[in-house]
Design a protein around this nucleic acid. Structure first.
Length: 587
RNA sequence: CGGGGCGUAGCUCAGCUUGGUAGAGCGCUCGGUUUGGGACCGAGAGGCCGCAGGUUCGAAUCCUGUCGCCCCGACCA
């Protein structure tokens, strides 16, 4: 195949579109691959579509290779299936909803678990039909609060979503591994660097969950990894808790005057000046126990206060808190909350008073009290004495106070130990490009997907759910492969195999270029031919760099002598070779 | 949803302070000169100046309202 640039439906822009910030967005628009239609919604021009199709083809090949089968569900769906799983409500403003002429509710699907599950339920009822993996590549719709960064976070985006159906846990584990392995091959073929991180299973329910993240500073996810191979999304990071220690030899706790010290900073300063540690070491924020009052708002609207104790050098990570308390929403406690609980003295809150426990379900306040894993038995803390201007020093966990449980909501910092003992972690940003997930029986249960097993017993099917953001992946590839002049596609997804430029005015140059294009075409190459007459070489070179086909052939001044230049877009290197050698050089 | 900014030609923007009926560069069309890094000359096409209302003899410009868009943050299976 070949395409003449003079005929191609494209217009490159000399200047950056003003609304595009990130490189992929800027360049894909400027090079004429996509065009904005509405916030987060894009039209696909021929060049963009070609790249998108190539990404899709790789996904299809790898999924088909282990026996997954392609299907296609509509993007427009009735609300009923989503009512059953309560997601019609849970999604809130996040989905596009619409009504038909009769007033019936519909939605533009943000994801398709329900309909996949229901279709399998319709058709299958025996263990002999399983395992089954079916997938689609379909547009998804989410009414993002703020679409941004072009294709990276759109409201309409293409996604490959795949679902596995098994009737045993072992079967699910295998289906999961097959998808995971296929995804690894897909990203490798796409030339995309990725890190597989443990992920939080989140609102989807289910158990094992891993994300494929592409490390990039513009990524929206923060993840941690250790040199020893541990990797997790921060939301899924678990703290390595110190082993409990005995406290028989520790001195009793002591209430000391700490006027005007309602913050950790002021408390540490005051402790060092007024109440220095007997052994002379400085007190630090990590010696203090900070008690944060949070309000949890359940989906049904009930509001519960909870206090979380964490080392004073830590802050609450809002995302981790959301995960820890899901499905409840986490808010900061308000003045009204404090007014209702006069025993809580702002700035001096602690789990202990001389008369006994102040925090905890069985305490004076009855407020649930959770602790960061670092507050293990035998550790000593400075914390509020629940009296204005007083803190208690040497308060020992397990001896002087106890909790109702553990809360993983403290922020993660570089240098924290990985929970598997593989060393300290570093933090990095990543863009989620894929997700593999053992959904388990949640949806099958809710939607009644059961099959008869070997013993004639009805068993609930267990599912896996897997996704790759196709259009996002395309943007991430552009993000990872460009320079200041334009795009530089990896060969596997480039819109063309080679970009031939006729550089010059003589008729003979065009004739030589034309015959080269035809011969490459007959060899099986997909060729883009810049045949534009009266366009100067400079413009053609610039457009070639913008468009980003990785291999460019310039037919120019030496064409009559049978020589052309082979131009490597990525390195910028140009080599003069005989025309007859071009096909071989491209192979 | 909070903060900031912007709506004028396909794109990037000027004009608005101080009202007088629409501009530049790029792109596009025609003619000509150019042709290895975004060349030039000449002639053109193209605009409900986001929308509505108001003030005024007259509004892109002033006033009120409204809609939309972009960026940062919050949110984001």
């Amino acid at each position: 195949m070949s395409t003449r640039l003079s005929q191609l439906f494209v217009r490159t822009l000399r200047e950056d579109p003003v609304d595009a910030e990130v490189a992929s967005h800027r360049l894909l628009v400027r090079a004429g691959y996509i065009r904005r239609q509405a916030p987060g919604v894009f039209a696909w021009l021929p060049l963009g579509l070609k790249v998108r199709r190539k990404v899709e083809a790789i996904i299809r090949e790898e999924l088909d290779a282990f026996g997954a089968q392609e299907v296609l569900f509509p993007a427009l769906l009735p609300k009923d299936p989503y009512e059953i799983t309560n997601r019609w409500t849970e999604y809130g403003d996040g989905i596009f909803r619409l009504k038909d002429r009769k007033g019936a509710d519909y939605l533009l699907a943000p994801t398709h678990e329900e309909v996949f599950t229901l279709l399998v339920k319709d058709l299958y009822s025996s263990y002999k039909d399983l395992p089954l993996s079916i997938y689609q590549i379909q547009d998804k719709y989410r009414d993002e609060a703020r679409p941004r960064a072009g294709l990276l976070r759109g409201r309409e985006f293409s996604m490959n979503d795949s679902y596995s159906f098994d009737y045993t846990d072992a079967g699910l584990a295998l289906s999961y591994e097959q998808h995971r392995a296929a995804y690894e091959r897909i990203f490798t073929r796409l030339g995309l660097e990725y890190v597989i991180v443990q992920a939080d299973a989140g609102a989807m329910g289910g158990s094992k969950s891993e994300e494929f993240l592409h490390p990039t500073p513009i990524g929206e996810d923060t993840f941690v990894r250790s040199a020893g191979g541990y990797a997790a999304n921060v939301e899924a990071f678990t703290t390595a808790a110190p082993a409990p220690m005995g406290f028989d030899s520790l001195p009793p706790a002591e209430v000391l005057e700490t006027p005007d010290a309602p913050t950790i900073e002021s408390l540490v300063a005051l402790a060092n000046s007024a109440h220095p540690r007997p052994d002379g070491r400085e007190w630090t924020a990590a010696d203090t126990l900070k008690n944060v009052v949070l309000a949890l708002v359940s989906p049904d609207g009930t509001r519960e206060l909870v206090v979380v104790g964490l080392p004073g050098d830590r802050d609450v990570d809002p995302k981790r808190a959301e995960v820890a308390f899901a499905p409840a929403e986490v808010e900061a406690a308000t003045e009204a909350d404090f007014a209702k609980n006069p025993l809580l003295v702002k700035g001096y809150i602690g789990p202990w008073v001389e008369t006994g426990a102040l925090l905890g379900e069985d305490s004076a306040t009855g407020i649930r009290y959770l602790l960061d894993p670092r507050i293990s038995d035998g550790t000593e803390w400075i914390t509020g004495a629940n009296i204005e201007g007083k803190h208690v020093f040497g308060l020992v966990a397990g001896r002087d106070f106890a909790s109702d449980g553990v809360a993983e909501i403290a922020n993660v910092t570089a240098g924290d130990e990985a929970p598997d003992g593989s060393g300290p972690v570093e933090l990095a940003r990543g863009m989620e490009i894929g997700h593999v997930f053992q959904l388990g029986r949640k949806y099958a249960e809710a939607l009644g997907l059961k099959v008869l097993d070997e013993n004639g017993k009805l068993v609930t099917v267990t599912m896996g759910s897997y996704g790759i953001g196709v259009t996002r992946v395309m943007a991430v590839i552009a993000e990872a492969n460009h320079d200041e002049k334009g795009l530089i596609w990896p060969r596997n997804v480039a819109p063309f195999d080679v970009h031939v430029i006729a550089a010059g005015r003589e008729e003979s140059i065009f004739e030589v270029a034309q015959s080269l294009v035809e011969s490459l075409e007959s060899t099986g190459f997909d060729v883009l031919f810049d045949d534009r007459p009266k366009v100067s070489p400079g413009v053609k070179f610039g457009d070639a760099e913008l468009l980003g086909v990785p291999l460019i052939v310039i037919v120019g001044r030496d064409a009559a002598a049978g020589m052309v230049e082979l131009w490597d877009r990525a390195s910028g290197e140009r080599t003069s070779i005989p025309i007859a050698d071009v096909a071989a050089a491209l192979a």
